[in-house]
Design a protein around this nucleic acid. Structure first.
Length: 503
RNA sequence: GGCCCGUUCGUCUAACGGUUAGGACGCAGGAUUUUCAUUCCUGUAACACGGGUUCGAUUCCCGUACGGGCUACCA
């Protein structure tokens, strides 16, 4: 049987970076086994629905290159893939489960249950308490019928039998055992007619032929209920295999990575920016911070998984080839932003100049800079070994696009000397006469000039660099000069000389 | 509180009874580059603790501690 896996997020807001990792592992598993990767939208909670969240999820998957084979926005013949479009299906199955004797109608209102929770410690709906609640188990059949016919608000709950052990074979954790007596009677169908996660999940996974459920560890405790549902429906023989992923933890301190950590540590924890009504609720993503999607994926893949061996850099195909559930770690992985930056730097360095130029174009355009490909490719060549993020090309390397904004006065004080003026003027003349204006030739000429005028490289080169870039950081001086062109180079030398003299 | 899961350098991890416990990030030092970065060397640092099992435990079992998750008509 061919592998079918699904990524099933809820459109309750921006998709967390941990969600992307879950999608990634599902994607890799599907690719590895020649299977199918499905996107299913789990929007059964109408109260938590957030407009734009579904679009965000789809865009995030597209950005990272984790393209589903089937799903909302991606076609497929096992749909609909949005749970709110499948409401009647769940209702039918829920009632069927009641008929089978594995579920029951419960008429207790949320308020009544809350009252019991207040009054009793550890109150929960289970085999013990259901005998003292209002449901089709405790009420005469006619009374239940009457309430149902009258349209009384009610939910359908799973009837968990206490005298049983539920064994879950987890691909990552091995066998996990739960006692039936410890499990609560989970709501399957809510009063509004919508299913809960538990019901919808099992019905959809079964109907969609899902073979492996790869999801976050937070689902491990409820997996026992899920097994009971498969059993109740008589689907246990085709029940998918489970793999519960370790969570992504905060960079420091306790707990799992949260939205707050993003602003707290000044780093993205979402793939894409989220634009909300207020700035406080908006935040940038990996994309806007200037991460390459390939680097983001590589970083995420290794957060909780490693194939063994000493390779660190993997593209998507290599990841899919190397992927195996057995190598997924069991413990939570701390989000290591330094490592994420390292990956990005590596990917920028290794990137094709033309591709980098395309990434730089919108950033340059936003600042009103030149955006022609030949020029941007030259910028890429000069800056790629110095950039951690994409915006670094136009921010750190701004002087390649516009005149020097500020000079490093400290350095000028060290290197400039009024006695140098004649030599500097002669140098400007020399540079202005250089042709063709190329880095290697220019370098040769300037070296000859230094030799002829008995000047040391340390006397001249730093000043040249200061004149062109204003700072001591940056690409080789002659490379910069070549990219700037003769006219601009000479202009900057003159401007700088005037500035030096004014000091 | 109850249930479930976990625990190797600061961080991500390798190891699947016998290793000088390996790699990567970070950090520190050095070389190259008369800038920065890159590159290349070197160094730093870990088997949570206590019992077993075994000729031998980081590795298997039990317990403790610590961490995490779940405990909604949320997913």
């Amino acid at each position: 049987m061919s592998v079918r896996v699904r990524f099933a997020p809820s459109p309750t807001g921006a998709l967390h970076i941990g969600g992307i990792r879950t999608a990634l592992y599902n994607y890799l598993f599907a690719r590895k086994h020649g299977g199918t990767f499905i996107l299913r939208i789990e929007d059964t909670d109408q109260n938590r629905f957030v407009p734009g969240a579904e679009e965000y999820i789809i865009e995030a998957l597209k950005w990272t290159g984790l393209i589903p084979d089937e799903g909302v926005g991606f076609g497929g013949d096992q749909g609909p893939y949005r749970q709110s479009d499948r409401k009647e299906i769940y209702e039918k199955y829920a009632h069927e489960l009641v008929a089978f004797g594995h579920a029951y109608y419960a008429f207790d209102t949320p308020e009544e249950l809350d009252a019991r929770r207040q009054a009793e410690d550890n109150f929960t709906c289970n085999f013990r308490t259901r005998t003292s609640l209002n449901n089709s188990l405790t009420m005469p059949a006619e009374a239940t019928r009457a309430l149902l016919d009258a349209g009384a608000a009610c939910v359908i709950r799973l009837k968990v039998e206490p005298e049983q052990e539920i064994h879950v074979q987890d691909l990552i954790r091995g066998e996990v055992v739960f006692q039936g007596s410890e499990l609560d009677d989970k709501v399957l169908l809510k009063a509004d007619g919508m299913p809960t996660y538990h019901l919808a999940n099992i019905v959809d996974d079964h109907l969609m032929g899902i073979t492996h459920v790869i999801r976050g560890e937070e689902w491990l405790p409820s997996t026992a209920h899920h097994v009971l549902l498969y059993r109740g429906f008589g689907w246990e023989d085709t029940m998918p295999q489970f793999a519960h992923l370790p969570l992504i933890l905060k960079p420091e301190g306790n707990g799992k990575l949260s939205k707050r950590d993003g602003s707290k540590f000044g780093m993205p924890v979402f793939p894409l920016a989220w634009v909300a009504k207020t700035p406080e609720d908006s935040f940038p993503g990996f994309r806007e911070t200037g991460f390459l999607p390939e680097a983001t994926i590589n970083f995420l893949a290794l957060l909780g998984w490693h194939p063994g061996g000493e390779q660190e850099i993997f593209n998507l195909e290599e990841l899919a080839e190397a992927f195996s559930v057995e190598h997924i770690g069991k413990s939570g992985a701390r989000f290591d932003y330094e490592k994420a930056k390292w990956f990005n730097q590596r990917y920028i360095m290794a990137a094709d100049n033309a591709a980098l130029a395309e990434h730089i174009r919108p950033l340059a355009g936003a600042k009103g800079y030149r955006t022609d490909a030949p020029f941007l490719e030259q910028v890429a060549v000069l800056m790629k070994e110095r950039a951690t993020f994409l915006p670094d090309f136009v921010e750190q390397g701004y002087y390649l696009f516009e005149p020097v904004r500020a000079y490093d006065d400290e350095m000028i004080r060290k290197k400039w000397n009024p006695a140098l003026q004649p030599a500097f003027e002669a140098l400007i003349e020399k540079v202005g006469a250089s042709a063709p204006f190329e880095a290697a030739i220019l370098e040769e000429e300037v070296k000859q000039f230094m030799h002829d005028s008995s000047l040391k490289p340390g006397d001249v080169l730093p000043l040249l660099r200061l004149a062109l870039a204003g700072t001591m950081k940056g690409p080789a001086v002659f490379d910069m000069a070549a990219v700037l062109g003769k006219t601009e180079t000479v202009r900057r030398l003159q401007t700088a000389l005037a500035y030096f003299l004014g000091k």
